[in-house]
């Protein structure tokens, strides 16, 4: 363990990774609880996959037209928000089946991302770090972006907590009480989209959904009040992110998969623990 603490003090990259992990835990825990409660995990997954399209497009256009401000992070945020808006619009209009549009965006995002990256001039882009994540590639700018986006999401949740809950629980009644259900549903998808961007940076596209959903799912086995679930799942995510980083550093294993493995095991154990608690 002391090796890890030394590394945190001496190696900026490790420090940034740890900071990003800690800060994003709050966002992930809170948003994850809403995603699990409202049962929109697959929407979150589709958004995560569409992010590759945004990253690919950003890399391609920034290199072809020399636009240094067009970073992969910016591309990711735009793609995630666009996908969220599209899914939300289709769901609210109900013109097409929700699962169909989710599947379409999921695959379209990956396909465009792969093509853009293939045709992007200049040095080859490492796909692996986007698909499987690499927390050790976190830069100072990433930490700043994580703090800004995370704070933005948490502020929205704190301000509109009761309205978000009301829309999740009973969209029709919320509307009758003067809450614009559509706006708040889109808001929920929007903050989910931003979380997925941060998540992809940390653990990659494939593993992102697990880290969003598992802590909240575990937490919701032990409480039936949303704000308690939010706090519990923030706590669990904090433990997974920091503990996972430290242990995987010590063991020299890839961080993302290790974090998700631990989260899955704890989720599985929570079934047993609940059984034991109930038998008493």
């Amino acid at each position: 363990m002391s090796e890890f603490l030394d590394a945190v003090q001496n190696i900026p990259l490790i420090r940034y990774a740890l900071l990003a992990g800690i800060v994003s835990s709050f966002t992930f825990g809170a948003v994850g609880a809403f995603v699990v409660t409202r049962r929109i995990g697959y929407i979150a997954a589709a958004i995560a996959h569409s992010i590759l399209g945004g990253i690919g497009a950003a890399i391609y256009f920034s290199r072809v037209y020399e636009l240094p401000w067009l970073t992969p992070m910016l591309g990711a945020v735009i793609a995630a928000l666009l996908s969220a808006a599209l899914i939300g619009w289709v769901t609210l209009r109900a013109g097409e089946r929700e699962d169909t549009i989710i599947g379409a965006i999921w695959a379209f995002g990956m396909a465009t991302g792969l093509l853009f990256i293939h045709y992007a001039p200049g040095k080859a882009v490492s796909l692996e770090s986007y698909i499987f994540g690499n927390i050790l590639l976190t830069s100072r700018d990433d930490v700043v972006a994580t703090v800004v986006l995370g704070a933005f999401v948490l502020t929205l949740i704190l301000l509109f907590y009761h309205k978000l809950v009301a829309v999740c629980f009973d969209e029709e009644y919320a509307r009758l009480r003067g809450v614009s259900s559509k706006v708040y549903y889109l808001l929920l998808l929007g903050i989910t989209a931003i979380s997925m961007v941060l998540m992809v940076r940390l653990v990659g596209i494939i593993l992102s959904l697990a880290l969003l959903v598992l802590p909240a799912a575990t937490a919701s086995r032990f409480s039936r009040r949303l704000w308690v679930i939010i706090l519990l799942s923030i706590g669990l995510t904090l433990i997974y992110n920091t503990g996972g980083l430290a242990i995987s550093f010590q063991l020299d294993t890839p961080t993302g998969p290790f974090i998700v493995l631990v989260a899955s095991l704890v989720y599985a154990l929570s079934f047993l623990a609940k059984k034991v608690v109930q038998k008493r």
């Binding site: 409660t37 629980f169 009644y173 809450v179 409480s223 039936r224 009040r225 949303l226 679930i229």
Partner: peptide
């Protein structure tokens, strides 16, 4: 859905 009776009744005051 994780919600208490009181939380639901409070929705009547959303306006």
């Amino acid at each position: 859905f994780p919600i208490t009776a009181l939380d639901i009744v409070l929705m009547g005051r959303l306006e």
